[in-house]
Amino acid sequence: MRGLIGVFVLFLAGEVLGRTGLVDRSYLPPSSVVLVHAGRLLVNADFLRDVLFTLGGWSSGLVIAVVIAVPAGLVIGSVPIVNSAARVLVEFLRPIPAVALAPLVVLFIASQSEMERTLAAYAAMWPILMNTIYGVGDVDPVARDMARCFGLRPSAVLLRIALPSVAPFVATGVRLASSVALIVTISTELIYGSGGGGLGQYIFAASGDPDGTPDVFAAVAITGALGLALDLLLTRGERRAFRWHFDRLGKNG
């Protein structure tokens, strides 16, 4: 509940600044006006289609990232030679902003929606990859020894010891990647277009309209709320699926 205080203060500040005319209303509409616009957008079928479009890019980017980063992380984490060989490459690629890759990606990919997914996947890969690698390093050698002593083959040790140990780390990586994927999806739509709508396209179009400023603010606020909701959802799923992980950590201090 206390988390809402910050939101309330921001809302109040926006309202006061807008109403008193300290800031020009056409630059910063009062919060209540933004709220009304946001309410209208949420019942607008076209806008909801844009939200769904963005969520489509977000989710397929995230899925592609998981499919690539989890196996890659498992291999990098468990084979020392691959690990040292990949380290520099990963540290080189990771800081490159996904959006900056767009001109390159265009050369290989025809449609704009594919580009959106590709860039989202690229950006979302890193937190998942890093967390997976870290998780592999965290697999307990005593647990491995135990499994080997009971006669488990290396493949069974991987499946029954390593994978369950790594899973909560992957989940954390996915949660972190989710917000990254959302940012990149919307940025791509905003800068390069999407070829079919999306929140970024909506914001871009509204910003071109002289009376669109409240709608821009409303769409931005909705985007923030969307990110928050996705994060809450994933955090909750993570806690529930890996209760053993978090409860144990809590217990050991």
Binding site: D140, V142, M146, C149, F150, L152, H245
Partner: peptide, 28 residues
């Protein structure tokens, strides 16, 4: 052969119930 390690908290698997931990090696 079976081994009991000193470090029980690390040799038991935290994602399994006590019963599943005991049953763990029996699949083999």
């Amino acid at each position: 052969l079976a081994v009991v390690f000193q470090d029980y908290s690390r040799s038991l698997l935290p994602w399994m119930s006590v019963r599943d931990n005991v049953a763990f090696p029996l699949r083999g």
